[in-house]
Simulated assay, not measured.
Amino acid sequence: MNAPVKPDAFRVDTSPAPDPAAPIIRFAQIGKTYPSRDGQGAVAALSGIDLDVPKGAIVGVIGRSGAGKSTLIRLVNGLERATSGRLLIEGEDVTGLTEAGWRSRRRATGMIFQHFNLLSSRTVFDNVALPLEIAGTPKAEIEDKVARLLDLVGLADKRGRYPAELSGGQKQRVGIARALATDPKVLLCDEATSALDPETTRSILALLRQVNRDLGITILLITHEIPVIKEICDRVAVIEDGRIVEEGDVFTVLTRPQHPTTARFVEAVTGVELPAYLEGRIRKEARPGDQTVLRITFTGENATAPVISRLSSTIGVDVNILAGRIDAIAGKPFGSLLVSVPTREPELAAVLGALNGLELKAEVIGHVS
């Protein structure tokens, strides 16, 4: 005789399927406060943070010291707990996780530190192997995995060396290999290049981009250096006084900043400095016979097009180039020029009208004789 079928066998799972397009990390109205030093109140480190980190993307959070960026990233591995709001990782609300729950969650999250945090008494191989040993991974598997990771970060020949024998860039490569040991889905970078020289920084950023591209690992990084954002990030959030003041894709935010804090950050990588011989001569008010100094911003196809020569030939106005630069932001060309044109009308109006017709941003810097 057949056993009776339990009603549960007919029960259909009606819970929604995971959304493949959903962000891997979502901050929803996150707030974090600390008790004040005098014990009479609370200090807000984060207030109303809304931020999505798309799966497979490199997202940067930039801000000055004390802006709240370190607190933000520490929430993602449970080193800090939110006071309000919700934090979702892979669709799971982790806001109220116990410490035991966080231990399991951290295995899917790698962390790279500013000052490397390597154990001086362990070799390069043993530093990378440490998280695998803690997880109880078999020795043979550890040997194979660490060897592959050291090859990935370019340190296969340094496996027996100690941290004191390595350069800063090599130490950070060990840190990256160690962070990848547990096959994380998310890599957190806490000012990972701040202690490195510019050339080493570029090599570490190239390695992080390779890790993101080849392994499909999502990267969330915090930094106070706008060149880091420009070099490898897909999206950027600007944080000030514990709030996100601007957020979007890197090219749009860096070429069309909307918030004064963002504008100050990006000026170093998108602006063109006024030549020294003009700094003391430029003035706000125009005088008869003056030239008007314009900063023209080029984006997309216009960044490499001969716009100035076309401008001169089309409207018959002499345009004098004072300074300029062409660069790439998020893989797209971007250019900025300082030029001088006649202040008198109708020439100035013709220049500004032509630039507007070409969809180029023109900003009046001042006037010189």
Results as ranks from 00 to 15, higher is better:
residue 241 D to K: 12
residue 241 D to G: 04
residue 242 G to T: 03
residue 243 R to Q: 12
residue 244 I to R: 05
residue 245 V to F: 06
residue 245 V to I: 09
residue 247 E to V: 14
residue 247 E to A: 15
residue 248 G to S: 00
residue 248 G to W: 06
residue 249 D to T: 06
residue 249 D to W: 01
residue 250 V to N: 08
residue 250 V to S: 08
residue 251 F to H: 08
residue 251 F to A: 09
residue 251 F to S: 04
residue 252 T to M: 01
residue 254 L to F: 07
residue 255 T to M: 10
residue 256 R to K: 12
residue 256 R to I: 01
residue 260 P to N: 01
residue 260 P to E: 10
residue 260 P to W: 02
residue 261 T to A: 14
residue 261 T to H: 03
residue 262 T to M: 05
residue 262 T to E: 04
residue 262 T to L: 07
residue 263 A to C: 07
residue 264 R to K: 12
residue 266 V to L: 13
residue 266 V to R: 12
residue 266 V to P: 09
residue 268 A to T: 14
residue 268 A to R: 15
residue 270 T to H: 07
residue 270 T to G: 10
residue 271 G to Q: 08
residue 271 G to W: 03
residue 273 E to S: 14
residue 274 L to N: 09
residue 274 L to H: 03
residue 274 L to T: 04
residue 277 Y to C: 09
residue 279 E to L: 02
residue 281 R to G: 15
residue 281 R to L: 15
residue 284 K to L: 12
residue 287 R to I: 05
residue 287 R to S: 13
residue 293 V to L: 12
residue 294 L to P: 04
residue 296 I to Y: 05
residue 296 I to K: 06
residue 297 T to I: 10
residue 300 G to R: 00
residue 301 E to I: 01
residue 301 E to F: 01
residue 303 A to P: 09
residue 304 T to E: 14
residue 304 T to S: 10
residue 305 A to P: 00
residue 306 P to D: 07
residue 306 P to E: 03
residue 307 V to E: 06
residue 307 V to P: 06
residue 308 I to L: 13
residue 310 R to S: 08
residue 310 R to G: 05
residue 314 T to G: 00
residue 315 I to R: 06
residue 318 D to R: 13
residue 318 D to K: 11
residue 319 V to F: 09
residue 320 N to S: 09
residue 320 N to R: 14
